[in-house]
Structure formats: structure tokens, C-alpha cells
Amino acid sequence: MKSSKKPSPSRGGLKNDAFVDKSLITFISVLSIIRAQDRQDSWIDRVNAFYKLCCSLFLIVLVALSRSPYFVFAVISVHLLAVALLKTASMKRVLALAATAFGFSCLMIAPAFFMGKAGFASLIPVKALASALIAGMLSLVKFQELTSALKRLHAPDFLLMVLDLSIRSLVMLGEFSLETLQALKMRRLGGRGGGYRSLAGVGGTVFLKSKEMSEEMHQAMVCRGFAGTYRPMGKLGFGLANAGWVLATAGLAALFFFT
């Protein structure tokens, strides 16, 4: 659990509704991130999710292992360059993610720094920035392509199906919870108390809805003759964008090993 220390708005009666407002904002932002998946984006989408996944994992491991600031710095610069070429919305998201990771990391490491016990841990905020940029670029991958990439890595069908279904359900249930929360906000009218009880009602309703929908989905699968196989692998091309991506990763890896 993490708690945000932002003070709630101090508008008298509305004060007690802060948690509803905050929940609403969280739900909206999550839904919009998933919706942004259905975009027609730029060059980044031409890089196959398989290469993206492998390269990102490899780089994240290297960053974690690295004790060399300039390797980390190189990773940051190359990724910043990639970020700079993204569409504005994607760019903002990756940067926000990176900034949050960096800030949080600085806060966490600051005490050790003052105790003089930091050592290489003082690199952690910078490493966090690098990893967040890598992860941010990876998070732009379309989720359905990501599951195909996992299939290529021989992940079991069961897992892929669960992941695909989770993300779909997330949209359906997310929209449902959003509406329920909005209804709650309108009915509460900034009233006091009962926060947990009303949230429990919303949560409970969401669960019942999810249960009902999962039963229906199961029936729909049965109807279409579900026999356990899921999705075949797509073709794995190797275009210019892929080559560029792999080369950039290889270059960074070379820096890691040769400096």
C-alpha cells in the first residue's frame, strides 16, 4: 500500500468526498491509458513487440547490473532520443512515468545519502530513471502484440488468455465502476462518514458484475467450441524499425561490456 500525502481539498462539506474524487481520477486515467492503446501511432509501432520485449528486458537487466554511470547515462540519452520522436501524448506519458520513478527514488535514497551509506545506491535514482524510460517505451506496446510476443517465447496459452481477458475485463469493469462511482458521488452530495460502507457497496457490485460477466463469457466460449487452443503466432518480420531497435540495444550492450 502506498498513501499519497496530498491534502484533500478543503471546501468544507466536500472535504469528505476527496476519496471519491481521487478514485474517479484514478479510474479515468487508467481507462484512458488503455484506450490510448487503440491509436495509430508512429514508427514505434513498427517495431515488433517481440524485439521490443526482448530488448527491454535485456537492457533492464544490464541497467540493474551496471555500476557504471556512463552506461546508465548512455541508456538514458538513447531513450530520450526515442522519446523525443514519439507523438506528444505518448511522449508525455513516458516522461511522466520516468519523472515519477526518479522523484520517488530520490526520496527513498535521500536518507541513505545523508547517512553516508549510499555507495552505489546513489546511482539508484539515475538507474530508476533509465529503467523507467525503458519500461515506458515498452508500455507503449499494444497489449495484444505483447501477448503474441509472449506466445513466441512459449508462454502457455492459459497465461496468454488470462492476460488478454484481464485487460478486456479491465475496460468493461472499469467503465462500470466509473459509472457506479459517479452515481455514488452524486448521491453522497458531500455527505459525511460512511466512506468505507459506500466504497464497499461499489466494490461489491463490481465483483458481482464481474462474476456474472465471467459466467457469460465462459458460456460464449463454450458456444464457439473452445477446446483450449488460443492464438497462433503471427509472422515475425524484420523491417527497418526492428533492425534499428535491435542495433540500438546491441550498441548499448557493447558499451556495457567494453567500457
Binding site: 487508467v30 488468455m161 488470462v162 475485463s169 479491465l170 466460449m221
Partner: peptide, 21 residues
């Protein structure tokens, strides 16, 4: 499969409810 997928979404959403502390 559907139950776990739905329930994954449910637990994801649970983590998004801001509770008053």
C-alpha cells in the same frame, strides 16, 4: 479462464479505490 481474467481486473480495480485514511 474467464473467472481469473475477470477477477484479475477486479483486483486491479480494487487497488484503484482510494480509501480515506
Amino acid at each position: 479462464v474467464p473467472l481469473i481474467g475477470m477477477c484479475a481486473a477486479f483486483s486491479f480495480l480494487l487497488m484503484m479505490f482510494n480509501l480515506p485514511l
